[in-house]
């Protein structure tokens, strides 16, 4: 029965689908809508799924649904690469994070990233996809994925440090 096969194949990846939708949409309400719609589309197109990585297949649909819904394709040009200016050996964010209440501070920082950076962080750090798999998911060359990841992490570190400093001066 195809319906059962669909459930067995797709439902195990519902957390991944929701997590991606939640990070792309920025709120729970839209994330739910996106997952519902993506699940319907996945069901409709399940006949076209020819095996392979069901999670990547579903997440590609979620991503597509989210961007369609948000009517915002990720911008291709993110400006000049300014990695050189970033101080790699700045204070340890791990200690900063501990002081800052950890997960909530990190969630707030990730939410501030541009969506192109946010999605590669989700795919790499939360879903553990390889660079090659991420390149396929975001339709970008591997080199672009690498540079987005590098810049995403540099920005995360800066945001966390800035947020922590802000809290420090307030308290």
């Amino acid at each position: 029965m195809e319906t059962d096969l669909f459930e067995q194949t797709i439902l195990p990846h519902l957390d991944a689908a929701y997590n991606l939708a939640r990070w792309l949409a920025g709120n729970e309400h839209d994330a739910r809508d996106i997952v519902q719609e993506a699940a319907l589309r996945a069901f409709k197109f399940f006949g076209g799924f020819r095996g392979g990585d069901a999670r990547a297949w579903l997440l590609a649909i979620v991503r597509n649904t989210a961007f369609t819904k948000m009517r915002a394709q990720p911008a291709q040009d993110l400006g000049p690469d300014d990695l050189d200016k970033i101080e790699d050996t700045a204070p340890q964010p791990a200690q900063v994070l501990e002081r800052a209440g950890n997960i909530e501070a990190m969630r707030a920082a990730i939410a501030k990233l541009p969506v192109e950076f946010r999605e590669v962080i989700v795919f790499r750090e939360m879903e553990n996809f390889s660079y090659k798999e991420i390149a396929e998911l975001v339709n970008a060359p591997i080199g672009t994925v690498m540079s987005r990841l590098a810049r995403a992490r540099a920005q995360l570190r800066e945001i966390i440090l800035a947020d922590a400093n802000l809290r420090e001066t307030r308290s």
Binding site: L14, W23, Q36, A94
Partner: peptide, 30 residues
């Protein structure tokens, strides 16, 4: 520099949003 990259990983992973249980139920209700 390597420690800095690695230091972020656990907290990022911990930022995962799991699907709410009622969403799981309603996805089945096409």
């Amino acid at each position: 520099a390597l420690r800095n990259v690695r230091a972020l990983k656990p907290a990022i992973r911990g930022s995962y949003y799991a699907a709410p249980d009622d969403l799981r139920a309603s996805v089945l209700r096409f």
